[in-house]
Write a protein that binds this DNA or RNA. Sequence first.
RNA 1: GCUCACUUAGCUUAGUGGAAGAGCGCUUCCUUCACACGGAAGAGGUCAGAAGUUCGAAUCUUCUAGUGAGCACCA
Length: 882
Amino acid sequence: MTEIPKAYEPQSVEAKWYDFWNKEGCFTADAASSKPAFSMVIPPPNVTGILHLGHVLNNTIQDILARRARMQGFEVLWLPGTDHAGIATQVVVEKRLKKEEHLTRHDLGREKFVERVWKWKEKHGGIIINQLKKLGCSCDWTRERFTMDERYSKKVAEVFVDLYNKGLIYKGKRMVNWCPVSLTALSDEEVIMKPQNGKLYYFQVEVAEEPGTFLTIATTRPETIPGDTAVAVNPKDERFSRFIGKHVIRPIPVELPREQKLIPVVGDEAVEFEFGTGVLKVTPAHDKVDFEIGKRHHLPFIEVINADATMGELAGNDLKGLDRSVARKKSVEVLTSLGAMVKEEPYQNNVGYSERADVPIEPRLSEQWFLRYPSQKEARDVVNSGELKFYPSRWAKVFEHWMVNIQDWCISRQLWWGHRIPVWYKDGEMRCQVTSPGEGWEQDHDVLDTWFSSWLWPFATMDEATFKKFYPTTVLVTAPEILFFWVARMIMAGFEFIGKKPFKDVYLTGIVRDKLGRKMSKSLGNSPDPLDLIARFGADAVRMGVMRAAPLGQDLLFDEQQVELGRNFCNKLWNACRFRQMQGGEVEGEINPALLTGDDKWILSRLDTCIREVNKAFDDYNYAEAVHVLYRFFWNEYCDWYVEAAKASLNSGDEKLKANTVAVIDFILSNTLRIFHPLLPFITEELWQGMGYSKDMPENQGGKTIMNAPWPKPFDKDFCEYYGLNEQMLKFTEAKYDLVVQGRNLRREGNIPSNKKVKFVLKPLTKFDERDLNVIKTLLNADPLEVAENYEPAKGTPSGRNALGEIYLPMDGLIDVEAERAKLKKLLEKCEVEIKRIEDRLNNPNFSQKAPAAVLEENRKRLTEWQQKQKQSQDALAALGA
RNA sequence: GCUCACUUAGCUUAGUGGAAGAGCGCUUCCUUCACACGGAAGAGGUCAGAAGUUCGAAUCUUCUAGUGAGCACCA
């Protein structure tokens, strides 16, 4: 590192290193490697997708996992790719077509339109991939896949044929969720229930057999009256059971002759006494529950709503052609004019909305393909037994709940963009096979639900050699929103088609919200653009900010301040390395144990703790904790204490001592950079190379890139012995720092500016060596630091004390005996309270008999400490005079 | 309606039975030679409420209140 800017400038280094890694093949997995495998498949973003903070969270976690695993000696595959996203993509291209050429897809025709989508994909589909690169994601781009790749598509068709042959896929006319905008069926998972403020309309119908007798019916959908083919009551309902078997006169369409308006009253247990009037109108063609009732009582199915949610011919003269919402108002008018309206009241209910088009779905009778889920038992067993783990574990329950209530999956979509259903028709004959049976066979017009291809992602993306080495994958990292859409289905597919689970662990991230706890959304405008954040703060800062804010198992409240903190941290790391550079000397010299100071040993020991804690946090997928540990170690322990203390040695004039200190610094920094690399890949590479730590190193020791440097290991026993790391030394050093804090406090209380050198007196109660005294002097900015075993302070000299000794700040003419006395009294009070509390506890026979020995020991030790402190304070108070 | 989370300092949160911790923010001081994207010292908490178990509860149990999510839905 020659020219070192004062502040870290991420913009100038990120692209450089990403290109370097990519060009050097650092991300490419070797299927022939003898190293143990670590593999992940990326949750494929939609090709239409644009990077949002959810992706950042998700992919940063995966990148951390991948980079750490590489450093730990695994052969890592992180397989990237994109999803063709049926509806989403088709809608995007259709909109564009309409805007730019005023054409609909029907104007172009199916073949031409699909061609257009492909062209669009080639041109715009890679945006999100490039964004992931900006974030630093170390995906194996040589293996990038798309769910409509030729090989992948073939696999999808084969799976369909296989399931068909097993009798799990069937075609049937059923009630499906119909999206009147996209004009396609949807699966239950694509329907979102939303509360609506609507109205409950009460109208009456005359009983045909008893003229003058009326039944009142409550409904939210009066426009479906023309489709009613019965009225249902609960057979146990004494108010109405006598009407069962009779008929009522359906009021709409008004123009029909009386005999065509007669519909039967049926008895069905599904009708609830309490709701509305207890009388239910039954519209078998347009409601799920009514469909079931209709089947039970063999009622006719009259379709009165068209595919586009306008009213059909059978709705009658008053309603036909109207949109469903207009028809609702119109039907109320008609009922009113007939004198059939009783009342309407405000009513809140839930209505299913199409996830993509955001309009109410229409339950619609339609011919679709369905899948009875395969390998359900295996999927449930593997999760229940803990053989496949969810993190956090509560998601396993949510998974189980869904599996228990699982419904057949409607897999056909009336779209053009997607995998076409591999079924062929000719002369009323039907065949299910991957390729056309030959001349004259026409393929089914529908395509498959996008998720029908996504659920094969963990293996359909892998070639034979890759599969052999890397399946099953190690861990899947994804958002909980797609637990049912994707995760559950992949588990079943894994068992059905491979006979093995697709991944060992599933880590479900939180949902990213804004700092007020609201979901990120375009309409709220509270969703920051990650690329903008990267441009302003750097990718490392964004990664750190997001990771720091992600508490385990909970949603993440994002605030730009977090990213700012990440940037500040990078700057700190940068400057700490700069400080090392300014010391000069040999890079990574040998550490001589004989020359180690207490501070050196302390920071080495803290590094060891840091490595252990970070490893545990990463193994638990606890990223916020890992960041917290790293932050504490590097900023609070290394920079705030060690570097400041080391300045005493560095400026001592003792060249050997200085060289040894620099060697310790190099050791710490080399480990720090490596342990930070998964989180902060760019800055650590820049510093690794710039500091010269890569120099003369073999490739597997980080010679080419920090990516290949070994992951730091906790120290073993021999290491600790060799360098003299022990508990006693740590305690001493920490007590030394405590004395410093107390001394600084005196300075603050005495209103002495921190940049002013001032005389401190240390009255030692134990032996300090020269270097320790020098450190205390440096840290206190004391000059001189007088050491006097028999120091007799003037009355009122501000003081602090602990087991190592007493520290005084003599102040000429500014002695405030009262203040010092008050301080000591306050301390004594605290001592009394604590001593009493601990004594009471120890004197309680129940406690001393039942508490574990370690706890007892701990309490006794604490008691001694407080008593010692009490004694010291009493002495000091006595010295002040009464 | 059912299920599951969550409630600790102004904010975001760590803490699964044995002295209430962190970051941000706040107060005061400091441009001293790595860093003002910085340094130093502080203030701030009846751990949502109640009852119980225990020698001992932020932590376990039960109830209550609030917040959030998922599932099921009544026309």
